[in-house]
Write a protein that binds this DNA or RNA. Sequence first.
DNA 1: ATATTGAATGCGAACGTTCGCCCGAACGCT
DNA 2: AGCGTTCGGGCGAACGTTCGCATTCAATAT
Lengths: 354, 354
Amino acid sequence: MAQRVTLKQVAVQAGVSYQTVSKVLNKQAQVSKETKERILEAVQTLGYHPNSIARNMRLQQSCLIGYSWAPAPPDQVNPILDQLLQSMAQAAETAGYHLLCFPHHFDQETVTAYRDLIDTNRVDGFVISSVEYDDPRVTFLQERGFPFVAFGRSNPELSFPFVDIDGAAGMQMVVEHLVRLGHRHIAALAWPKDSRVGQNRMDGYLSGLAANGISVSPGLILRCEGNFQGGLEATSRLLELPVIQRPTAIMAFNDVMAIGAIRAAQERGLQVGVDLAITGFDDTPMVQYLTPTLTSVRQPIWEVGQQVISILLSILNETSLPGAQVLVRPELIVRESSRGQSIQNDKTKLVNYP
Amino acid sequence: MAQRVTLKQVAVQAGVSYQTVSKVLNKQAQVSKETKERILEAVQTLGYHPNSIARNMRLQQSCLIGYSWAPAPPDQVNPILDQLLQSMAQAAETAGYHLLCFPHHFDQETVTAYRDLIDTNRVDGFVISSVEYDDPRVTFLQERGFPFVAFGRSNPELSFPFVDIDGAAGMQMVVEHLVRLGHRHIAALAWPKDSRVGQNRMDGYLSGLAANGISVSPGLILRCEGNFQGGLEATSRLLELPVIQRPTAIMAFNDVMAIGAIRAAQERGLQVGVDLAITGFDDTPMVQYLTPTLTSVRQPIWEVGQQVISILLSILNETSLPGAQVLVRPELIVRESSRGQSIQNDKTKLVNYP
DNA sequence: ATATTGAATGCGAACGTTCGCCCGAACGCT
DNA sequence: AGCGTTCGGGCGAACGTTCGCATTCAATAT
């Protein structure tokens, strides 16, 4: 491996003190044009690159942003992880920052890993995701006064910078879409009450119904686990209701529940999209290849990643409005499962309500 | 934010020089029992944690492992990213290392990002994945003599440390399985010839046939893009062959192609799993919820992550056998699409050929 | 009694930067 | 001619560690 080139070697080559080289490179000094050129030339020929560890040492920062996430359960895949990481990494890189990814620990206290990274000065800030009510990470980081930005909200009374998807708006779009198709009996496959994201989507479902003058039928709201089995069983129960109470449309709170719902309907010989509308949430890439293709709500993850990093960087540079809170609108993707058309495999229509 | 505690403060508290504190903490010195206890007590009460930037500065290392990956195309999801990252991050953490994730650049020369990270001393080593023939990263890192481990092989003549899935073995398991069910006309939905992974899987397909005394029918090998559309169109062509040439089983080189194949078969009114066997590769979590559920090959990603990091760490500690090359066996997951049974949704049988 | 060991600890130096202060020279002004 | 101002650049210091060598003191061997 080539020996590292340092400031001093450049300085010798250019015949100046090494501190002057540093000044030139940081564009902050008043140096004559000639010496400046001489120095830059020496930098070129020697192939000098600043040692970031030494810079970090001097500047008392690491230029690293910590990020950790809960792994997806084995029967599911995290549909946004790839894009979120790429987006955040890209936004960070342009500012000279990088992402430090650390593993999620179920067993021990969650905040331990965060504390260690702070105590050892490894990171300058955090991005946290999958934020829940009374999230221990939020309270911990707030107590320590350590910079962080959340992807997702928490308790309304807690005030901290976040970026979140407007899940309520997304659900409202779905309701709107179904109502236009003539549906009035719209069921919801919801999550347990302790889910913050679930509550947000529920709000959208309810306000969507209200906005269209539809009264809520408690029997059409089923709370269950957000997986295939949950969607399957809940839908089975819905389809056993007396005809007059039975829903003509089912809104699942995520895609994998919708897939369970489709299976339940098909087992009863129903043609999804014709006899019964079913919608999902997340727009997992594969749902466009289901039979029928699934109507879902797509989250603008790239934008979330950009915003999260942008806010965090402004906090780190202390150029921030203290409590930036951003909501981004998702996008409704209408497909066969809610359209009542015959099945075609290559048509996907994008509808984005403004 | 609390003022940072340094070695010197601990030293003052314990009444020794700060270098002695360092020695105690690194367990390398001969210090008396009493002072050792006094120092450790001071460390406790002051809450001292070593500043990792300063350590890195002194030790001329960053304890960071660089990792970058090509994002999945928009209609697909990377089924292994989550688990691979968690596995690598976990393995790294136990050795005091962390993952530095940087974005993939399509436009510029791929190695630029790698070069920058090396030049600025940001990372101690790399993990690279999606390795192809004549991969520029391999040649670049070999030239620079910079530590790295690959997830995936490249040209056979290149010698570097890697961990790879034995894709050939996986495909052979599939052939074996299909032959036991009585299939003799087994088609392959393959990838373009420049794909290293594709070639590896093709080898397994061919040797699997040979091992069972089945001669290769060139008409049953179709090369196409590894996406839904590719699988759909290739399967359509296969199903238009004269009955005597038509395959009774189709092995797709990945899951999303298999999904396209299923669609093509269903459009012709075939019952997949009964009239025609179809298999995938990767065992993307969602394929267990397809109709019919999909037989696929599962890759032991957790193990890959552990091995990759373990090898890299041994290189960094110079305790390595120079060219560790590890193959891990995948696992065949048999489901309805190749079983010829009526459709049931909750039965998944695992078969792992030894 | 003196030389030889060994343990326990102190001390200087270095890793590669950045920052602020200082100093000399040149310049323009009264 | 004297004085303040600006420009160009040098220099010391510090960030918090770790490492190797020097030093002290007591114990043992000669």
